[in-house]
Design a protein around this nucleic acid. Structure first.
Length: 738
RNA sequence: GCGUCCAUAGCUCAGUUGGUUAGAGUACCUGCUCGACACGCAGGGGGUCGUUAGUUCGAAUCUAACUGGACGCACCA
């Protein structure tokens, strides 16, 4: 044995062995199962993945060693929008767009990328020593999974839990697709509130409306005032002549209007604002010969849409405002209003702008046909499972976050106007009637359509729709496979708090819907890995650490290159380079996977942000060396007991301490406190076993118990540091642990 | 607006039911090349536990207010 432990060599050896095997306790009637949150095939894995996989692997090995039939389902996610964006960006570098290629050719490109990314990801998972069965690998867009997705869609449709609706959605003008509420974030910003004078019809008077979005005035269909507002209530029933357009729009009374805000008059633009849409719907606003009318018939409701898919003004606006970007329209509208003397004033105003989480572009509410899942009933059932204790959250306080969202859940828009994803299993005839079925043949038979020309829906499903089926579909559903029977519901789900709504809640709803069972019994919600200052790791901040660089180490020049290449803004490269050189003047050392794993466990506290810190990593690398050297020392004694037999006070003491530690560790592991657990074994090994017991043994010469005790310790340590312990165990006992 | 979380050593964090002198890793200081390990050993310094008031025999821990910070949800045009 070398004086220093060389993790890289040892780890490469064992990970190559482990990737070919499958942990099995087939005789056991008690199982432990979990599914991997399938990583997106968008590139490579980051620290957050490594962190969570380290914990998942811990639990898999731990339960396996405790006699359970432990199973960890592995796989990857096709990640619709995210992956499509990566491939589109790659094409853009060659000055090509997806439309140049066409749908079929483009999808070929995406599949090629998927292969590339998948190879990276799987090799990384293997390198971390994850005990998964690679023969059971699943991809959310493989053929069987596609069937499961179609079946889920069709079943929900038949149960009237999926419907198609024409309404306002969050439209991403850069991706040109609808996105769900969750995929929109709000940016707080200082904006402006413009006061615009709207001329009253047949009078030489004006009503002043206040708006943050003057460009949408072409879509105005009413002006609303509060009926209790004495200043304006007399105008209810009169009309406005909408400037530029000449449309006659009614002045209506609406309790929703806050008389004290702005001018107290609110312009109603049902085609471009969610609140206005609701008001417009209530009054069934529609235009007849340049006049907006109200009615009691919901069929009449017809909002005016003034932007196209790119958020450029369309034919519903006057000629000189046509075919312009919405922000240019705004500028022009303000200029023209000014010229007409209709712009009364502008005020500074705090606004929150909706932006697409992927594209960062300002979301434009847009009228369109989309598919929706009715969520209220499903959410109620999921909540019931939580309330009855069938699903437990760890730590529990995440329940509040969960309920906060679930109790106010809205229908889920699941259609996306992109190409990479599960095509919606709906077919249309020439009149636009939709038929839903597993495939075209199924549709023709079910609806008795004969040879009627049919065209499949061009849209694909939200990625989270397929992800929500993952816990059971990855195990074989809708087939009643052995795996499904044995490992479902799964025991544990380990995931970050950031996807409780996106994923955890939706898995719960879908699982109960389709299997009648909860998807998992326990949810261990982890924090998110941040840099050493608690900052989110991102390419643009230049603070990304690749877990592989911690395992293998990296030269400074390579690290600088890695951090400064492919930046969106070239300007920040210098800053990042300086920062990197300052922080890592000698590059990054090689620490090995076990040290990294143990660092992750020690950081797995119950806080939301987890600052990754090199001090810890160094400490655990030192610990690995310590364990190695203790083993090397013990290996020098050729006489030893087969099992631990207490001979003196020192023996009794260490064995009692060891048993205390084992008990603590068990307790901590079961309560999802791996930070306590790792600390316990660390402290026992270093402070008690090495510093005290080993020294006592040297003095007394009673060294026969060292070897059997080390063997026992290695077993306890194994799920924390699998490579190191396997190597030592094999050297000293000529036999691997697992 | 509603809600959640955080503030403890230079740094990053624990503090598991309210109970001795508040802990760990790292960094720092002083000795040690003495046969496992200098990625080590033996010592050491370093904290008014964000502020204030309260509950209590006893508070880092419970309560309230405040200050500073992170985040989630819903939003007034």
């Amino acid at each position: 044995m070398d004086k220093r432990y060389n993790p890289v060599e040892v780890e490469e050896k064992w990970s190559a062995i482990w990737e070919k095997r499958r942990l099995k306790n087939s005789g056991s009637d008690s199982t432990f199962s979990q599914v991997i949150p399938p990583p997106n095939v968008t590139g490579t894995l980051h620290m957050g993945h490594s962190f969570q996989y380290a914990i998942m692997d811990f639990y898999t090995r731990y339960h396996h060693m405790n006699g359970k039939d432990a199973y960890w389902q592995v796989g990857a996610d096709h990640a619709g929008i995210a992956t499509q964006m990566v491939v589109e960006n790659n094409l853009a570098k060659e000055d090509k767009s997806k439309d140049d290629l066409g749908r079929e050719e483009f999808l070929k490109e995406v599949w090629a990328w998927k292969e590339y990314s998948e190879k990276n990801i799987t090799s990384q998972i293997k390198r971390l020593g994850c005990s998964v069965d690679w023969k059971k690998y699943r991809f959310t867009f493989d053929d069987d999974f596609n069937k499961a997705v179609n079946k889920a869609f069709v079943d929900l449709y038949k149960k009237d839990k999926i419907y198609r609706g024409y309404r306002l959605v969050n439209w991403d003008p850069s991706l040109k697709t609808a996105v769900s509420d969750l995929e929109v974030y709000r940016q707080e910003k200082e904006g402006k509130l413009w006061y615009i004078k709207y001329p009253l019809h047949g009078k030489n008077e004006f009503l002043t409306v206040a708006t943050t979005r003057p460009e949408t005035m072409f879509g105005d269909m009413a002006v609303a005032v509060n009926p209790k507002d004495k200043k304006y209530s007399q105008y209810i029933g009169e009309y406005i002549d909408l400037p530029f357009v000449g449309r006659k729009i009614p002045i209506i009374g609406e309790d929703y209007v806050d008389a004290s805000f702005g001018s107290g008059c609110l312009k109603i633009t049902p085609g471009h604002d969610f609140n206005d849409y609701e008001i417009g719907k209530k009054l069934c606003l529609h235009e007849v010969d340049g006049v907006i009318k109200t009615s009691k018939n919901i069929e009449d409701f017809e909002p005016i849409s003034i932007f196209d898919d790119n958020a450029y003004s369309n034919n519903s606006v006057p000629d000189n405002f046509k075919n312009l970007d919405r922000f240019k329209v705004r500028k022009l509208v303000l200029e023209e209003l000014e010229k007409l003397g209709l712009l009364e004033k502008e005020e500074k105003h705090q606004i929150s702008i909706p932006r697409g989480e992927r594209s960062d572009i300002v979301i434009e509410p847009k009228l369109s046909y989309q598919w929706y899942v009715k969520t209220k009933d499903m959410a109620a059932k999921a909540n019931e499972a939580v309330n009855s204790g069938k699903i437990k959250f760890h730590p529990e306080n995440w329940l509040k976050t969960y309920f906060n969202w679930m109790n106010n859940i809205e229908d889920w828009c699941i259609s996306r106007q992109i190409w990479w994803g599960h095509r919606i299993p709906a077919w249309y005839d020439e009149d636009g009637n939709a038929y839903v079925g597993l495939n075209e043949e199924d549709v023709r038979q079910t609806y008795n359509l004969g040879n009627l020309p049919l065209k499949q829906d061009e849209d694909v499903l939200d990625t989270w729709f397929s992800s929500s089926l993952w816990p059971f579909a990855s195990l074989g559903w809708p087939e009643q496979t052995e795996d499904l029977k044995k490992y479902f519901p799964t025991s544990l789900l380990i995931t970050g708090f950031d996807i409780i709504f996106f994923w955890v809640a939706r898995m719960m709803m879908m699982s109960i819907e389709f299997t009648g069972k909860v998807p998992f019994e326990n949810v261990y919600v982890t924090g998110l890995i941040r840099d050493e200052n608690g900052q989110k790791m991102s390419k643009s901040k230049g603070n990304i650490i690749d877990p592989l660089d911690l395992i293998y180490g990296i030269e400074l020049e390579d690290l600088v290159k890695k951090r400064t290449s492919n930046l969106m803004q070239e300007k920040i490269a210098n800053k990042i380079e300086r920062k990197t050189r300052g922080q890592f003047p000698k590059g990054i050392d090689s620490y090995g996977t076990d040290a990294l794993r143990m660092t992750f466990y020690s950081l797995a506290t119950h806080s939301k942000d987890i600052s990754f810190e090199f001090g810890r990593l160094k400490g655990y690398r030192n610990f690995c060396t310590k364990v190695w050297n203790a083993a090397r020392f013990i290996n020098n004694y050729s006489e030893y007991n087969q099992t631990f037999i207490s001979k003196d006070k020192s023996d009794e003491w260490i064995y009692a301490e060891f048993n205390k530690s084992i008990k603590q560790i068990k307790r901590n592991v079961e309560s999802y406190r791996l930070d306590y657990a790792i600390n316990e074994i660390y402290e026992f090994f270093w402070n008690k076993f090495c510093d005290v017991y080993l020294e006592e043994c040297k003095k007394s010469g009673n060294t026969e118990n060292l070897r059997p005790l080390l063997k026992e310790i290695l077993l306890v340590l194994h799920p924390f540091a699998p490579f190191l312990t396997e190597e030592i165990h094999t050297i000293l006992f000529d036999d691997p642990i697992l």
